[in-house]
Computed example of a mutant assay.
Amino acid sequence: MINLRSFAGQPLTCTRMCFLVNCLKRLKSSQQWLSRQNADPYVEKAKIHNYRCRSAFKLLEMNEKTNILTPGLTVVDLGSCPGSWTQVAVQKTNADGADPTKPRGKVLSIDKLQTFPIEGATIVNHMDFSTIEAHDKVVELLNGKMVDLVLSDMAPSATGVRELDKDRIIGLCYMAIRFAALVTKVDGNLLFKVWDGKEVPILEMDLERFYKSIKILKPQASRSESSEKFILARGFKGIQRPLQNGRWEN
């Protein structure tokens, strides 16, 4: 039993009390997370199938329904660490050349963090995808190719303030949309994660300006208590660029 009147032999000031309460909350949250992980069948499946984390099954399930990943496609995975979506993308696009009878795709992954090598994928570490430097690097690595599909399973680190966290992930979504608009071929697709909230319908309306169809997906592998869902935008319309003679092109 912790004595709330003193901590480590010192009187508890308001600051010390707040620190102690936050530590206890984090301890409880960590214990709940460990219990949930131990009871999660997808965690065990990820180990069996050699995926780096359970999120691989979210993409596998969504691909089963939508067929957005097929051999020969060029795919960019934003915020790829630890790499489970990249693993799935490599397998489904045949980027590792595992099946010589099918077209060989290309998978490029980018993250601020370190993603360990994945056979068949080109990985760009320690780079913020939203920067001009990252865009130029991706264009260089694609060697003139445009992208068939942009993936994003990114989410910001939680602050514990619900509205602030939602605003931050919406910001990430718009950055992913902007990136996709610069590298995606006409009729290409975008799949990204968002947390449910009042901002999502506005996000969908903005997407409709650039894509032919918008679909909301909630895979079974996504935990039932989670507010996450995924938006699939299909059929990129292209963006108009002005020419010197005053005309426009897609």
Rank of each mutant, 00 (worst) to 15 (best):
I214T: 13
L149W: 04
T184S: 15
N143P: 00
L34G: 00
V161C: 07
N143A: 15
I110K: 05
V161I: 13
G144T: 10
V124I: 15
P82Y: 14
V194W: 08
D148I: 04
G97Q: 07
S6W: 04
K102R: 14
Q32H: 07
E204N: 03
R241W: 01
N189D: 15
P242K: 13
D40G: 04
S226Y: 04
R168D: 07
A46H: 01
E249H: 06
T122V: 15
T184I: 15
N50F: 06
Q31F: 00
D187S: 13
N245Y: 02
M127I: 12
F192K: 01
N94T: 08
W248I: 08
A98Q: 10
T184H: 01
P71I: 06
V183L: 11
A233H: 04
F19D: 12
V75P: 01
N189L: 02
P219G: 05
K102Y: 02
F7E: 15
F19M: 12
P71M: 03
S152Y: 05
F19C: 09
K137M: 13
E228I: 03
N63F: 02
T115F: 10
K198R: 11
V161P: 00
L27M: 10
G144V: 13
Y51I: 06
Q240C: 07
G83L: 06
N63P: 00
P219A: 07
E208S: 14
G79C: 07
A95S: 15
M17A: 13
T159E: 06
S157K: 11
M127C: 14
V107Q: 07
S130A: 15
